[in-house]
Simulated assay, not measured.
Amino acid sequence: MDYTKNIVLENSRVRLRPLEAADFEELKTVAFDDSIWQFTITRAGDVLSLAAYMAAAEQARQAGQRYPFVIIDRASGRLVGSTSYYAVDPDNQRLSIGYTWLGAQYQRTGLNRAAKHLLLCYAFGTLQMERVELETDSRNQQSQEAMRRMGATEEGTLRHHRVLPDGYRRDTVVFSIIRPEWDGLRHSVFAAFDA
């Protein structure tokens, strides 16, 4: 994974490009909604926390720990959220997709699945990964259902796994997609984006 590379991915619904400091003003219009951050480890629901979120994402990219993207709705051209690759393990050919959030008005519209399509295509194709992992708070039923609908396999729950900003120690549900499953999912669940 080359963290210095300017990775731009696009399908019929969304465009992903690297998150930049200049995205702050437009992301403000969708990020300042507490409901988005209810189950997340990082928060960006106000000016200070969004600035900190973006700075941390850039620092993690420079350190080779995370590759953050901005999600652009191709229909409107608007920035609607962000997602990232992280925990990239080239020796074991696996990585995680996470730090994903969308403005409330863009949830359940297909944009998240379209973004996941791009990230999975790049992970299994260009990066030659064998395994992609996704995690979510055990209380976040909407996120878990989205992962199931995209064909990810629920592997189990890591108890008392992460501490949230409010001090709550969450259980994390782990999902994955592996290379032998990808071709079938690409031509079924993600077929609308793979034209």
Results as ranks from 00 to 15, higher is better:
R94E: 13
M150E: 05
G151F: 12
T153L: 06
D73M: 08
N140E: 03
E145W: 07
D73L: 05
M147I: 09
A44F: 06
M147S: 05
R74Y: 11
E145I: 06
N92H: 15
G125S: 14
I72E: 14
I36N: 01
L134D: 00
W37L: 00
M150K: 04
V80T: 09
N92A: 10
Y86K: 12
C121R: 13
T42L: 13
D34H: 15
Q62V: 00
P90G: 09
R149E: 04
A31M: 12
V30T: 07
V88A: 03
P68E: 10
D137I: 06
T83S: 13
L118I: 08
Q141R: 13
T126D: 15
R113H: 10
L102Y: 07
A51N: 02
R61D: 04
T136P: 00
R78D: 12
Q59P: 00
L134I: 05
Q144K: 12
N92P: 01
K28V: 10
L48T: 04
Y122T: 05
I72A: 07
C121A: 14
A87K: 14
R78M: 08
L119C: 08
G151I: 10
S82H: 10
Y99L: 03
D46S: 05
D33R: 03
S82V: 06
I36H: 02
A87W: 09
A114C: 07
R113M: 11
A152N: 08
D91Q: 14
S35A: 14
Y67K: 08
M54L: 06
L48E: 09
A114D: 02
T109A: 13
D73T: 03
A52T: 14
P90Y: 13
Q93N: 11
G125P: 10
T100D: 05
K28F: 12
N140S: 08
S138R: 05
Q93W: 11
N112M: 04
T29Q: 15
W101F: 14
Y99H: 14
Y86V: 02
Q38W: 00
A51Q: 05
A75F: 10
V80N: 05
V70W: 08
V132Q: 12
A104W: 02
L119D: 03
A115F: 08
L118S: 09
V80Q: 09
N112A: 06
R61E: 05
D33K: 02
R131N: 13
R113A: 13
K116M: 11
S76P: 04
Q141P: 00
E135T: 12
Q65G: 04
A57N: 06
Q59W: 04
G81F: 11
L118P: 05
R131K: 15
A114Y: 01
L120V: 06
L79T: 10
E145D: 07
F39K: 02
T83W: 09
Q144C: 09
L118Q: 12
D34Q: 15
G125A: 15
A60D: 13
S84G: 03
D73R: 10
A114N: 01
T42S: 14
A104E: 10
F69N: 01
R74S: 07
R108L: 02
T29D: 12
A44W: 02
A52D: 12
M129K: 13
V30R: 02
D46Q: 08
Y67Q: 06
G103S: 14
W37P: 00
Q107Y: 06
G125N: 15
A63I: 00
V30G: 02
E130G: 08
A56G: 08
D91C: 09
E145A: 11
T42W: 12
A104I: 10
R108P: 00
